[in-house]
Design a protein around this nucleic acid. Structure first.
Lengths: 155, 155
DNA sequence: AACATTTAATACTAAAGAGTACGAAATACG
DNA sequence: CGTATTTCGTACTCTTTAGTATTAAATGTT
């Protein structure tokens, strides 16, 4: 059991990748998938979700692709997680009890609520800009396998 | 995507239920499943895991059942989660990157590590005794559906 | 207008999680 | 010894998530 689904992880990775690019032009999903070592088709589906959510914009045809719809400083981790996995992680009871809340708490309510709120706070205040800066500053890894390779100008 | 699997949630609920009983005798899985509104067969499989992990002990035959192997004050939430879902939640990178760590961090490493450590700390220091006490003190709910009913002496 | 490129949409396959069923093994009790 | 009770082990089904494939729609270029 993981906190984020695979779809969500891919979405976050792609978003960070876009945010880390110098210019904000359309980048083909193929390029992103290649750099991040993700299945192109699968990533396409994930990015469609982010596009529909208004987090990214897409453009079809030659030189088309996807791009962040807003400046990376105004997109939070929580935005992306919310769009793909939903807000469940930030709101649900640890034990999955439907009506768990202040009025009718489960035995783990207090501990978990404080936890969850902190998680939400961190995700809400962490922006793509911040993550992208770290990624490039520290030469930090983004992709699973070999590492993000050098940018090869698209042709 | 949830933090804990259904199996794990059921395991935790059952453990709290056992801990909340006055005496620590063998309780049939059927009784536990009934009180907690969980499928008997499914709960059986989950509790087998906890038995194999040494957290519970079982006894077959008439008047058999399961019981906590140790006093409820020495069983932590983390023990149960670890046995059923594994320690992944407490150790894994948010973005699921294999070698993510201090030496080779992902962009979300710092934030997530502090989060995770706190989660682990809370789960490690929260005992079944504590949870069970809350459950009975506050007349707090444990099961999803109707509510834990009154104890009906087993015969 | 024709063609190449790239996302959108849909459908399909594979794997994992959740839930069900049933027979085998252990044990108490008459 | 036989029978009822209760966990153990295995196998099966259903649902969700992950991943693959294919066709349609949009758009720039020649």
């Amino acid at each position: 059991m993981t906190v984020l689904s695979k779809s969500c992880i891919y979405g976050v990775q792609a978003a960070i990748y876009l945010a880390s690019l110098p210019k904000s032009e359309y980048v083909s999903i193929q390029e992103v998938a290649g750099k991040l070592n993700i299945s192109f088709h699968f990533l396409t589906k994930v990015l469609q979700i982010l596009t529909q959510a208004g987090i990214m914009i897409s453009y079809r045809g030659p030189n088309g692709g996807i791009a962040l719809a807003r400046p990376s400083s105004s997109v939070s981790l929580a935005d992306i997680i919310g769009a793909i996995d939903g807000t469940e992680v930030f709101t649900e009871c640890l034990l999955g009890l439907p009506g768990c809340g202040h009025a009718d708490p489960c035995p783990a309510h207090e501990q978990w609520t404080s936890m969850r709120n902190r998680l939400y706070h961190i995700c809400k205040t962490t922006t793509l800009e911040e993550l992208a800066t770290k990624a490039s500053e520290l030469n930090v890894r983004l992709a699973a396998h070999p590492l993000v390779q050098h940018f090869t100008p698209k042709e």
